[in-house]
Computed example of a mutant assay.
Amino acid sequence: MLTILGHAVSINVRKVLWTCAELDLPYTLEAWGGAGQSTAAPAFLALNPNATVPVLVDGDLVLWESNTICRYLAARYGDGALLPAAAAPRAQVEQWMDWQATDLNSAWRYAFMHLVRRHPGFGDAAAAEASVQDWNRRMAILDTQLAHTGAYVAGSDFSLADVVIGLSVNRWLLSPIVRPELPAVAAYYQRLLQRPGFITHGANGLP
């Protein structure tokens, strides 16, 4: 049985939970972070010195970093689902996963912390507006890619790239910002809503 340490509000924890749903993997979720136990506790820091969720425990293996956990689960239990075995298609999936973790996340972080979390360390309205503009620009890149594939982020098949980016699309749609019309992203979101795992762990109540 897999053990996942985290809380279901966290976007990074939800990546892992959605991956488990796609692979039909049973797990136990231990509540850490958020309203759960403190990630500053020595027991948690012994597993992840960064004090962040999620953490995966699979037997003797302990992993942190959400995209790495998703890759491991797909490689270990997916039998080719979600993450191709062949080098070239796998690299395309991982390219977009890395883009989500670096370029896309970096773009929205300030705006989200300012507008949604109201974090005192992110109080500069001009910086938040610049973040929104960058966020929308990155989403336009995604729109172009989805228009090209006509289906999912890395091609015609659903993959881990859609797990991590699908949650980011949901965050973009839920945040109180002015958004451009991105028709390929809108159609993509409707495709994601056909997946039970996304409805449970990703859609956050959106219709």
Rank of each mutant, 00 (worst) to 15 (best):
L2A: 03
I4E: 02
L5E: 02
G6C: 11
A8G: 02
V9K: 14
S10N: 10
I11Y: 09
I11C: 09
N12G: 00
V13M: 05
K15T: 01
A21W: 02
A31H: 14
W32K: 01
G34P: 08
A40E: 14
A40C: 13
A40N: 15
A41P: 09
A43C: 10
N48F: 13
A51M: 14
T52D: 10
V53Q: 08
V57W: 08
L61E: 04
V62D: 04
L63V: 12
N67P: 07
N67E: 10
T68E: 06
I69M: 07
R71M: 11
R76A: 13
Y77K: 07
Y77E: 05
D79W: 07
D79S: 14
P89R: 02
R90P: 02
R90W: 01
A91Q: 10
E94P: 06
Q95F: 01
W96I: 02
W96A: 00
W96T: 00
M97D: 01
A101S: 13
T102M: 14
D103N: 10
S106C: 13
R109P: 07
R118Y: 01
H119I: 11
P120S: 14
A125T: 11
A128D: 01
E129N: 08
A130G: 11
S131W: 08
Q133G: 14
D134E: 15
A147I: 06
Y152L: 04
A154D: 07
G155S: 08
G155V: 04
G155D: 06
S156C: 13
V163G: 05
I165R: 04
G166H: 03
S168I: 04
W172S: 10
L174H: 11
S175W: 09
I177E: 11
V178A: 15
V178W: 07
R179P: 11
P180L: 11
L182S: 07
P183M: 02
A184M: 05
A186C: 08
A187L: 09
Y188R: 06
Y189I: 04
R195G: 06
P196T: 00
H201L: 00
H201I: 01
G202D: 07
G202F: 06
A203E: 01
N204P: 00
G205K: 03
L206M: 14
L206H: 00
L206E: 00
